[in-house]
């Protein structure tokens, strides 16, 4: 009796809610932690970056204007679906990061809980960071946080799922949209996460995921005039200064990377939520 052959998955990009191949037609082999072939990933190009930015910009209006309650519910729904894909993520983490099953399970638990933590922030960040300003005059003055816009995210290179979720969730929880460059050598969990996003209620274009060479894609993201902010977490160390300089061309907000990749298992704070928010202050006179 012959064994059944499994159907292998084709890993593609996630742009505007769809899964296209790279327009360049390129792909690159992805290996597991021991060096064995896992799959080919699409190798995104400069033009894919631009397509993704267009998709993110297009999605920004609807996503940023959705009520915070609605965004929170949509993000919580993602956590529900992540939970349902537990086994798949555990297997993928085992393959791509070489984690033992138990360790991989506890990482996936953290992934789901992390997503829930950020989902809960959607309708709370304004009350924590906003304020009624006690100005010295007959005016009502208040300040509220607003999303910065389209955020380019260079995802962590080492932690391919927990790290990824830890940088993407805060960006979209506050109403931004994201163009994410996945871990170069461990891109597969990012594409599976994209499948979760695509089948949840997150509108297409809110999160766009590119796989490929980070050093090739990052400069285009950093210099793109329609990108409002840049998260350098996964940038190759030698390139960060250059990327910051490129970002200065349109005064992007830049979240710098530490010397080493953070320990993503540590409970987060609101730093990443604050990083991609503007503060808007409104004045209105008082009087009869």
């Amino acid at each position: 009796m012959s064994e059944r052959l499994t159907v292998a998955k084709t890993y593609k990009l996630y742009v505007g809610g769809a899964f296209p191949r790279s327009e360049s037609g390129r792909s690159y082999p992805v290996q597991d932690a021991k060096g064995a072939f896992l799959a080919n990933a699409a190798q995104a190009s400069r033009k894919d970056v631009r397509d993704a930015v267009v998709a993110a910009r297009k999605a920004l209006g609807g996503w940023s204007r959705a009520t915070a309650y609605n965004r929170g519910q949509v993000l919580y729904r993602v956590a529900e679906l992540l939970e349902g894909r537990r086994e798949q993520f555990v297997a993928e983490l085992g393959a791509s990061e070489g984690l033992a099953a138990k360790r991989a399970q506890s990482i996936v638990d953290l992934v789901v809980d992390r997503w829930v933590w950020y989902a809960g922030w959607a309708d709370k960040i304004a009350t924590v960071l906003g304020a009624a300003n006690p100005v010295a005059g007959p005016y009502f003055s208040f300040s509220v946080p607003e999303p910065t816009g389209v955020v380019g995210v260079l995802a962590p290179q080492s932690s391919s799922l927990l790290g990824l979720v830890s940088v993407v969730a805060p960006v979209i929880a506050t109403g931004n949209t994201a163009v994410v460059v996945a871990s170069q050598d461990r891109p597969l969990p990012a594409i599976t996460l994209s499948e979760v996003l695509a089948t949840s209620d997150v509108p297409g274009g809110v999160v766009n995921v590119l796989t490929g060479r980070t050093a090739e894609l990052a400069p285009w993201l950093a210099s793109h005039a329609d990108v409002n902010a840049l998260d350098l977490t996964g940038a190759p160390e030698a390139t960060t200064t250059e990327l910051e300089r490129a970002a200065a061309g349109t005064v992007k907000r830049v979240l710098r990377a530490g010397a080493a990749e953070p320990d993503w298992t540590v409970a987060p704070d609101v730093k990443r939520l604050r990083a991609f928010l503007e503060t808007k202050t409104v004045w209105h006179p008082k009087g009869t």
């Binding site: 309650y69 519910q73 809960g120 309708d123």
Partner: peptide, 16 residues
């Protein structure tokens, strides 16, 4: 909605 909103506070009380 009231349950949903407060659920999110349970692990964020330090920020209140």
């Amino acid at each position: 909605a009231h349950f949903f909103y407060h659920a999110g506070w349970a692990d964020k009380l330090d920020y209140a």
